[in-house]
Design a protein around this nucleic acid. Sequence first.
DNA 1: TAAATAGTGTCTTTTAGACACTATCGC
DNA 2: GCGATAGTGTCTAAAAGACACTATTTA
Lengths: 241, 241
Amino acid sequence: MTEAAFLKGYDPTAYERPSVAVDLVLMGIRDDCPAVLLLQRREHPFAGHWALPGSFVGIEEALDSAAERVLHEKAGIAEAHCEQLYTFGAVDRDPRMRIISVAWLALLTGDAFAAALKANPALLPASIKVPWAGETGGEVRAMAPDGKVLPLAFDHAEILSLAILRLRGKLDYSDVGFSLLPELFTLRQLQDVHEAILGTSLNKPAFRRRMLDKGWLAATGAREEGTSYRPAELFRFQRPL
Amino acid sequence: MTEAAFLKGYDPTAYERPSVAVDLVLMGIRDDCPAVLLLQRREHPFAGHWALPGSFVGIEEALDSAAERVLHEKAGIAEAHCEQLYTFGAVDRDPRMRIISVAWLALLTGDAFAAALKANPALLPASIKVPWAGETGGEVRAMAPDGKVLPLAFDHAEILSLAILRLRGKLDYSDVGFSLLPELFTLRQLQDVHEAILGTSLNKPAFRRRMLDKGWLAATGAREEGTSYRPAELFRFQRPL
DNA sequence: TAAATAGTGTCTTTTAGACACTATCGC
DNA sequence: GCGATAGTGTCTAAAAGACACTATTTA
């Protein structure tokens, strides 16, 4: 950083600074399909369009703190897996003013997803449809529960695409998948989560083998209840030794 | 985004905004070891410490444009593979003021790396040493050509760690490795690049098989020159069909 | 006992590592 | 021919997919 560059930023009145915001992809699984929580915009621009929950970042607020604050304020969620996705900084991404947005991906369990809908009735659970065009992803679409395609505000369609791509990429080598499940779950539920995100069906024995070999699963001995067939064993996530 | 939140950001005098900068990891391979170009700070804070080249982002400048500008201005490089790494936004990462920094990874060919050193003599080529602690990465160290460990400014050691980790992760499934090589290269050179980044030695036949199977390599029929042994065939990178 | 899903055994296919072998260059 | 590295054939080991089979529960 040169001296000139430093001074350029040091005098708050000398140079205009961009606003910085965070936008959150609040993702869960609904009906074996990835779903995201959206808010409808009431004001210009993109009035009537749907947007990711977000907020400006305070001058004394860390980026991850801002993301967590949105999680609390907009969805009433105390805790969730939350990771940074990407920072979007095109000059004209918001027609009003320069806003640089740091996008985050938050993964919600079924319960957390439902709780958010209850805590903030303005949130709409939108299904994410991915035109499985090979692997490139193409553009994703967000669908309302009634099946209508939702127009997305700003560059939020791009953010949503990236969220799905990132999740697909990390699903197999990391433990993010467990963030979408309750504390106790069956292997079938885990496989359903993976299949929903990947958009493909997986081989059952191979999937079980791989998951068990990774050492992520702790058998509880307990079994699910209320089924009309053989109940599956319940597992718990554990970090490998 | 609520109305209140919008107004909060809309009036430039009402709320203080952070400065936004870009910092670049200019990476190349030197002596079969990843290397990065650093600048020594002359001013407080971290005077004497070494920092990644960077700059503030202009109010009418896109993030990727700012990154490219740094590439030109600080290293005289016209073109390089450049991808966003992560955005660092801890409140106190710069003691002077709030600066949010978007870190970028630029991959330089050997020629580009040498050209940068010539274009800006203040740049120091530092070897990156990774304490191969399993996979977690631990903290990387930057070493001057004379072998001295360089103290890094701000959170730039963290950025460097992330750069190496990202590169390692992408190396096998993406084509980033070719960005570190000249247009024509031998399979041995490609393997050397992979080994330098991964910090391990690889199996030759398996490596060749995998690379050829991916369809990334176009044989040229030409061979390297000036060797005192059998010259290897030169390949060119091509996108798979 | 029937229906439905849980969970497993095993064969095949694919892919990676090991290692030795052949090929080709300058000297 | 010698030395050195390029490039390959093949065996082995590990992992993934396919598929059928057994096991266990409720109704």
